[in-house]
């Protein structure tokens, strides 16, 4: 099931602009390898889940996957062939706001080769350009 918040203060949010780079959540913290976004964008909950499934199917019981993003933002849309006006549309799906540098997923407990293959499978599903990164000790 796709991720979504349990409780929210407001059902709808303004679109906003994604400005600047990620200054938090831009280091591999939990695992040894990670997938880092190089572009800004919205990552829908269904896409996050699709990536998680793709990685789990490859990893099976080996290793551990960490999902580092959560869809906090509701995205609204209005039905087709609707006349202008009548206010903002209804929430359609939830998305995570991704800034360049954000770590999207992390992997632990597998070799680098396996992590590269796994994250490459996952990268195909991402709507933003991503790159493979390793944990840094210094």
């Amino acid at each position: 099931m796709a991720l979504m918040p349990k409780r929210v203060k407001h059902r709808k949010s303004q679109r906003g602009r994604i400005r600047g780079d990620a200054t938090r959540g831009n280091r591999v913290v939990f695992g040894e390898f990670g997938l880092q976004a190089e572009q800004p964008g919205w990552l829908p909950a269904a896409t996050i889940e699709a990536g998680r499934i793709a990685a789990q199917q490859y990893l099976r019981t080996e290793g551990r996957l960490f999902v580092r993003v959560f869809p906090h933002k509701s995205i609204t849309s209005i039905p087709l062939e609707t006349r202008m006006g009548k206010g903002k549309g209804e929430p359609e799906y939830w998305a995570a706001v991704v800034k360049p540098g954000t770590i999207l997923y992390e992997i632990a407990g597998v070799t680098e080769e396996a992590a590269r293959v796994c994250l490459a499978r996952l990268a195909h599903k991402m709507p933003v350009r991503v790159r493979f990164v390793k944990r840094r000790s210094m």
Binding site: M1, M4, P5, K6, R7, V8, K9, R11, P91
Partner: peptide
């Protein structure tokens, strides 16, 4: 097993 009745929308505070 995931809950069968998944909530369609989150609870709005207040």
């Amino acid at each position: 097993a995931e809950a069968a009745a998944a909530t369609a929308e989150p609870e709005v505070i207040g």
